[in-house]
């Protein structure tokens, strides 16, 4: 019955991955860039949660939304201060777009890591749990209370996001801008504001995922690297920019990795996802779940 255990735990991990990856996918969807500082949104969420709960003595349940707000704020600030040249009428910038995006987001990642390292300190913090439980078993499946609650919150957030994008006016504006920025602008949609919104949502979700996992991961300044790399794999698997693709790919990767670690190699479990990323980009750049986009 190990199989069931691995499957369920893989799905739970997949839910965390999804919370992280959909924001990255949304940013790729509208700007066609990879935000290499995405992991630092996660790190900021984890730290906000831990510090607010520990230092201010706020209940962990109240610290959670504060972490979300911090993430949204950072995402919004990043868009306002650094992403505008990518689309707001800077003419000659367009040819340098990819380079600029790589350099600036990579630089931002280093900046945030080192800033937190200096201000808060390099040592990992232990975050307070939302509920105090030990591991327990349901049938063959070993579960951990904190993880289960975190997974439940993640699932609820993902469903909420899906409804938001599909149903709400803002959500439809996001879809429109992702499909055709110019067209959406001509139709009267404020594409700039929509992009800010996407960065805020992206920051919010990543920060929440960091906060939810803070009791499990013990955040340190470079804690964002690992989930960020997972998100890259997922965004590629899900077809660069597709939110639905990213959600499915997250669950898929979570389960695959969980089996890989047990049946193939524990040491190389993280290399496995990266190998998939390389193979997919090389042989099927549209992603396993995406549609082929024609260039030229």
């Amino acid at each position: 019955m190990l199989v069931v255990d691995l499957f369920v735990n893989g799905l739970i991990v997949g839910l965390f991955y999804a919370l992280m990856a959909v924001g990255l996918a949304m940013i790729f969807g509208v700007l066609k860039i990879v935000n290499f500082a995405h992991g630092e949104f996660y790190m900021i969420g984890a730290y906000t949660y831990v510090l607010v709960a520990l230092k201010l003595g706020v209940s962990p349940w109240a610290a959670l939304p504060l972490a979300a707000i911090a993430g949204a704020l950072v995402g919004w600030l990043v868009e306002r201060s650094l992403m505008r040249p990518l689309y707001a009428g800077y003419g000659s910038w367009s040819i340098m777009k990819d380079e600029y995006a790589v350099v600036v987001t990579f630089g931002l990642s280093l900046f945030l890591i080192n800033l937190v390292d200096k201000v808060v300190g390099p040592y990992p913090y232990r975050g307070p749990a939302l509920v105090e439980t030990s591991r327990f078993a349901i049938g063959p499946v070993m579960l951990n209370g904190q993880k289960l609650i975190a997974a439940g919150v993640s699932a609820a957030l993902l469903i909420g996001l899906a409804l938001f994008i599909k149903r709400s006016l803002w959500g439809r504006q996001i879809q429109a801008v992702a499909q055709n920025r110019l067209g959406a602008s001509l139709a009267g949609i404020d594409a700039t504001r929509t992009t800010s919104l996407i960065f805020a949502i992206s920051g919010l979700l990543a920060a929440l995922s960091g906060a939810l996992l803070a009791p499990v991961i013990n955040p340190s300044p470079d804690v964002g690297g690992f989930p960020a790399v997972k998100s890259y794999v997922i965004v590629v698997l899900g077809g660069m920019g597709s939110v639905w693709g990213a959600m499915i790919a997250s669950l898929l990767l979570g389960v695959l990795e969980s089996f890989f670690a047990v049946y193939v190699s524990y040491d190389y479990r993280d290399a496995f996802g990266l190998l998939i990323l390389m193979l997919v980009l090389i042989f099927r750049p549209q992603g396993l779940l995406g549609e082929k986009v024609r260039e030229l």
Binding site: K32, I33, V34, V102, V236, M278
Partner: peptide
């Protein structure tokens, strides 16, 4: 055949692997 963000991600993966 890979450009921009795709190239960055592939080379990043290679480096990490």
């Amino acid at each position: 055949r890979l450009r921009g963000p795709y190239l960055a991600l592939t080379t990043l993966s290679f480096a990490e692997i």
